[in-house]
Design a protein around this nucleic acid. Structure first.
Length: 650
RNA sequence: GCCGGAGUAGCUCAGCUGGUAGAGCAGCUGAUUUGUAAUCAGCUGGUCGGGGGUUCGAGUCCCUUCUUCGGCUCCA
């Protein structure tokens, strides 16, 4: 007999070799029907695998991330079986689960897979799923595995096998499909009740662009038909929030083929939004001791030769601007830091002057590859809320903490609750590719880790992800469709102070090298606004909304009164417009609801007589009649209380 | 840059197997003067992304190029 400890701490006895599934059955049939996999002594196992010794056991269902992963991993195998049935001679690479669904990379052997084929694949998957085929685990010798996949002609699997150790190789089979796989898998295909092929995409074999391009087939499955329907509606909803769609509908920005791809054109409403964000940041920065600077959009080649960017990116970027002067070359600035270094150098610095914080909303130009441009999140010309802090090594941590405060201030003010922070450190195995002394790196990495911990950030540490010039802390958020984007960034830099020979005089009257910290809480205005649009679905916080109210006269007779109301409200510092079109009130309301204007002020005979406005809140409907003064106070209080609340949270 | 979709009026889209473009909204004009999510009527909008080809004839078929979408790679 073996002792099985369950999560609630209870211990039960079972015969040796009893599977998790059988244990679940002994608890309740209903539970057994939902068990997808099990965690045995901390390792994820097939629910059908026999347990040979005392163990702690956690049964995994659809409600567990690991349960979902197992389901989707098994679904990838099921899809592979369906694909093999439809596309003879198809070759397989790998098919892992994802956060939402799974994919399989396949070599279609010259055949094509179009959208029109998706249904066929889905139908085949469901046909196979209904056979309730069990997933069979088999341990196999390396030689046998090589001969099996060799006979089948699965060259990619042979590649995988090369890296595996004999005695550690397992195959999983279900129905007519056998795959090289570590597992675990769900008990049988019957758990899969709904399947959807989402899309296909090219993917380089092993992620290397020199290799052959395989077809990556994305899919998702569910244990209930209803779950799939819900998921599909969720996708639809997400599409409605897409910043590219809302940007067009709300007249925030546009692109023009003539101007060039990846070069956003800000429309008046979008530009106003930008300006408001800039003012917001400037206020916060002034309070935090930043000094404004301003620099031109181009600089001589020599500047970037000095910074090292020319050597590293010169050929892959926008090419130099020539002048009538022979040999003279200018570059569009790809970053603001070199300029700020030169500003630092414009006067001698004492240790008492540090930290020096130079801030600039600097527009930069980077030649991003054609295929990677994406709405406002990936563009070729964008404005960073950039600042560079020049600090003494002993100030790194304190300054880092202050920058984190600033980033959190931004996230709070805009209601971003879900984000992750990634700490990128150097690869300890390969220290030689980084610039700067061991001592300084250790200091800076320590400073980042400690300040992130002090600020209570949820962090992921990535070794080897640091830039060659220093470690960094990046804030990531997801867009409407679940794609991850980096917003704010804080980076330590040992490289530029060295290259630009930046110095300060210490208390010992010797020259010392300052440490540079790059930081951009928004990241870039473009990307930030994109993520903000999706985050709030176009319903901006009141203080940011391009128009806070629209005045809707019942008929043209009340246009004059409406104009008076507009002027009066303007004097209270709130903004809006009069919808003077010759349309019925219902139409005006509908249009302004669609444009997501926060408040609509209906004015007609009654209102004019009483000097009032009938207020309608976006998405809520009529909220009563206000005097103009009361309405203005109401709006201003809403904005203020919003900010106060945010500050209290900090 | 790579793989695979897409590109028709300002916007959203229709146009079957090739026979020389169509709707709704927006815009303009007029009527109406309106009370909480679309008033009615008329009109103006398109070298069907660009270029080339096949054909008596191309939005439709072929080639090429640009842009865009989903990924891959990249991301100072």
């Amino acid at each position: 007999m073996i002792k099985i400890t369950l999560p609630d701490g209870s211990v039960r006895e079972y015969a040796k070799g009893t599977s998790s599934l059988q244990i679940a059955q002994s608890i309740s049939e209903g539970l057994a029907r939902n068990v997808l996999a099990a965690k045995v002594n901390g390792a994820t196992w097939d629910a059908t695998r026999g347990i040979e010794q005392d163990a702690t056991l956690q049964l995994l269902t659809w409600n567990d991330t690991l349960g979902k992963e197992t389901m989707w991993h098994s679904s990838a195998h099921l899809m592979a079986e369906a694909l093999e049935a439809i596309y003879p001679g198809i070759k397989f690479w790998v098919g892992p689960p994802l956060e939402n669904g799974f994919y399989y990379d396949v070599d279609l052997n010259g055949q094509t897979l179009a959208h029109a084929d998706f249904e066929k694949i889905e139908a085949k998957m469901m046909e196979l799923a209904r056979q309730n085929n069990i997933y069979i685990r088999k341990e196999i010798s390396k030689a046998d595995a090589i001969s099996y996949f060799g006979d089948k002609g699965d060259e990619y699997k042979l590649h995988l096998l090369e890296r595996l150790e004999d005695g550690n190789i397992t195959l999983y089979s279900q129905g007519n499909f056998t795959d090289l796989c570590r597992g675990p898998h769900i008990p049988n295909t019957g758990f899969i009740k709904a399947a959807k092929i989402l899309n296909t995409a090219g993917a380089y074999w092993k992620g290397d662009e020199k290799n052959k391009m395989l077809t990556r087939v994305y899919g998702i499955t569910f244990p209930k038909e209803k779950d799939l329907k819900e998921y599909l509606t969720l996708l639809e909803e997400a599409k409605k929030r897409d910043h590219r769609k809302l940007g067009k509908e709300l007249e925030l920005f546009t692109f023009s083929e003539k101007v060039g791809m990846g070069l956003p054109l800000w429309l008046p409403k979008g530009a106003m939004l930008r300006e408001r964000l800039i003012q917001f940041m400037q206020k916060a920065q002034t309070a935090a001791g930043y000094l404004p600077v301003a620099t031109p959009h181009i600089a001589q080649k020599e500047l970037y030769v000095c910074s090292g960017h020319y050597e590293k990116y010169g050929k892959d970027s926008f090419q130099p601007i020539k002048t009538p002067q022979e040999g003279e070359e200018f570059f569009l600035k790809p970053m603001n830091c070199p300029h700020h270094c030169e500003i630092y150098k414009s006067s001698p610095k004492s240790y008492k002057d540090l930290p020096v914080r130079y801030a600039e909303f600097g527009t930069v130009y980077r030649y991003e590859q054609h295929g990677e441009l994406h709405g406002l999140t990936r563009v070729r010309g964008f404005t960073q809320d950039d600042a560079h802090l020049f600090v003494r090594p002993d100030q790194v941590k304190e300054e880092f903490c202050k920058v984190i405060d600033l980033v959190l201030h931004v996230f709070n003010a805009l209601d971003f609750k879900e984000y992750t922070a990634q700490i990128s450190l150097r690869d300890p195995e390969n220290k030689s590719k980084y610039i700067g002394s061991d001592e300084n790196w250790a200091l800076a990495e320590q400073a980042i880790i400690e300040s992130a911990a002090e600020k209570g950030l949820k962090t992921v540490v990535e070794l080897g992800e640091a830039a060659f010039y220093g470690p960094k802390l990046d804030f990531m958020v997801k867009d409407a469709l679940g794609r991850k984007w980096q917003l704010g960034t804080i980076q330590v830099d040992y490289n530029l102070p060295e290259r630009f020979e930046l110095e300060y005089t210490g208390s010992d009257n010797q020259k010392h090298r300052p440490v540079m910290i790059h930081r951009a809480p928004f990241g870039s205005l473009e990307r930030f606004i994109a993520v903000l649009i999706e985050h709030c679905g176009g319903n901006f916080p009141l203080w940011l909304a391009p128009d806070q109210f629209a005045i809707l006269p019942i008929s043209e007779k009340y246009n004059n009164y409406a104009q008076n109301v507009l002027n009066l409200l303007g004097s209270f510092g709130i903004r809006g417009f009069v919808d003077e079109r010759n349309e019925k009130i219902g139409k005006k309301i509908r249009d302004n609801e669609i444009k997501k204007v926060p408040f609509m002020l209906v004015v007609g005979e009654k209102e004019e007589l009483e000097n009032k406005v009938a207020v309608r809140a976006h998405g809520k409907g009529d909220i009563g009649t206000y005097t103009i003064h009361d309405f203005a106070t109401y709006i201003n209080e809403l904005i203020e209380s919003d900010f106060k609340q945010k500050q209290n949270q900090e």
